[in-house]
Write a protein that binds this DNA or RNA. Structure first.
Lengths: 195, 195
DNA sequence: GTATTTGGAATGACCGGTCAGTTCAACTAC
DNA sequence: GTAGTTGAACTGACCGGTCATTCCAAATAC
């Protein structure tokens, strides 16, 4: 599944090289606002400004589209968090982790909301993709906590608590109190987590 | 999960007085597992062990049923949290708040999941009900923080962070690590929040 | 007697997915 | 150079299925 613009081997250029991305963008936004199951393919096509058929030309099915959306959001998440965790431990790691997550929410609000709203839902075909990114997101925190002598079970729960504090405060900011700025939210989360 | 025992006479099931609750129970469970939009009225009726017509006799529409589910879960939440907050301030309030929320998740997992998964979704008819309970849930924490000199905006963000840490750790527990027990999860959240 | 429940059939809207056809830039033949 | 060819990208009408909702006559509860 190529994520970049199609570059044909015979030198041809796709008529509208942005179609796939346009679909992903529109889908991400609609999924964030209304949830996956109540966003129809017709709506996504209309919102992306393309025909319904093009969605099925670019993606195997609705589930495939969802997976691609989750995949893209997950890559974003993993990238940001990997950078934030590099060479850091303890309180400093936690602090940078929170900052990075909030920056992600600020810069990609729809992607963040899709991940959160679908995170705890079961019995879905895209469960696996979400699962994968969930592990990646938590791994740096878990590893650090275990290194500090916390048991594996506790480490996972504590990491979830840190992520939860950040995500929910971040979404509270986005959805209900956008008048605050990034620094306000970061401060609130860090104070709450005692960093 | 039926609330009253069936009683057969003619191949038909008589369950007069408990019908409404049976519907609410079944709906809550299905909504938690699959989400609102992908739980059909037929499924809810079958799961509740009653006829489809009875749902429309007891509720105006699917949206009305959802609203009733949210309403009931919200009352549960508000009740538990009101009790936890009574006559408490500062760290002790926060501690009891976390304990109460986790106990709620333990005792009413489906209700908790419905509230969380629908919490940050927009453009829904039941948005208003969720909104109401969200405020109630946060109010005690917000008031306490403001009393301690925290600004209104910061208080709301910090309260959200506390609730977020508790909810996400609680759902992590429920969904992914049920082998832990209530005390483990409580400890993890309280440690993370520095209480 | 009235309120509630049942079982099921009917209706119309919507939705995911299909497919025959269109478009057009690159390519080929002459 | 130009007329014709190719084929990936795109289109939108259409189809089969699902779903919420309505309706109702018979049965049951209070």
């Amino acid at each position: 599944m190529a994520t970049t613009a199609p570059e044909k081997t015979d030198g041809r250029v796709a008529r509208r090289s942005g179609t796939r991305d346009a679909i992903l963008d529109a889908a991400t936004e609609l999924f964030a606002a209304r949830g996956v199951t109540s966003s129809s393919i017709d709506e996504i096509a209309a919102s992306a400004g393309i025909a319904k058929g093009s969605i099925y030309y670019n993606f195997e099915s609705k589930a495939g589209l969802v997976e691609a959306v989750v995949e893209r959001s997950g890559e974003l998440l993993a990238g940001v968090l990997a950078e934030a965790s590099a060479d850091r431990v303890g309180v400093e790691l936690r602090r940078e982790f929170v900052r990075a997550l909030l920056a992600l929410i600020r810069d990609h609000p729809s992607a963040a909301r899709v991940m959160v709203t679908e995170l705890f839902r079961t019995e879905r075909s895209w469960r696996e993709s979400i699962e994968r990114w969930r592990s990646i997101a938590l791994s740096a925190l878990v590893a650090d906590l275990e290194r500090a002598g916390v048991s594996a079970a506790q480490a996972r729960l504590q990491a979830a608590a840190i992520v939860g504090a950040t995500l929910v405060a971040g979404l509270e900011w986005l959805v209900f109190h956008p008048e605050n700025d990034y620094e306000d939210v970061t401060a609130a989360v860090l104070v709450t987590l005692g960093c």
